[in-house]
Amino acid sequence: MTSNLGWPPEPDLATTVRAAQHGDDEAFRVLYRQVQPGLLRYLRGMVGDDAEDVASEVWLQVTRDLRRFRDEGAGFRAWAAGIARHRALDHLRRQGRRPMVTVPADVLVDLPTGYDAAEQAEQAAATRAAIAMIATLPRDQAEAILLRVVFGLDAKASAHVLGKRPGAVRTAAWRGLRRLAARLDRQADLPGVTAPEQGLRPSASTIRPFATGE
Rank of each mutant, 00 (worst) to 15 (best):
V161T: 05
A159W: 04
S3P: 05
D185F: 09
G152V: 05
R77D: 09
R208F: 06
G96E: 06
A182Y: 09
R170P: 04
P112W: 03
R165Q: 14
A74F: 12
A55K: 00
M1H: 00
P99Y: 06
R18D: 05
D106L: 07
A121V: 15
R165G: 11
R87L: 01
F76S: 12
A126M: 08
L184F: 13
G167C: 03
P104G: 12
S205G: 07
S3L: 06
S3W: 08
I83Y: 08
A55S: 01
G6L: 02
D154S: 02
L108D: 10
L31E: 11
L39G: 15
Y115C: 13
Q61S: 03
A51D: 04
I83Q: 07
A129F: 05
T102I: 11
D24G: 03
L60C: 13
T206K: 07
R98T: 04
T113I: 04
Y115V: 14
E52H: 12
H91D: 02
A78D: 07
V101E: 05
A80F: 07
E143V: 01
L180I: 15
V17M: 02
V193N: 05
D25L: 14
T127V: 15
R175M: 09
S203R: 03
F28K: 12
L92T: 11
E72I: 15
V107Y: 04
A117T: 15
G38K: 09
R44S: 08
V107A: 04
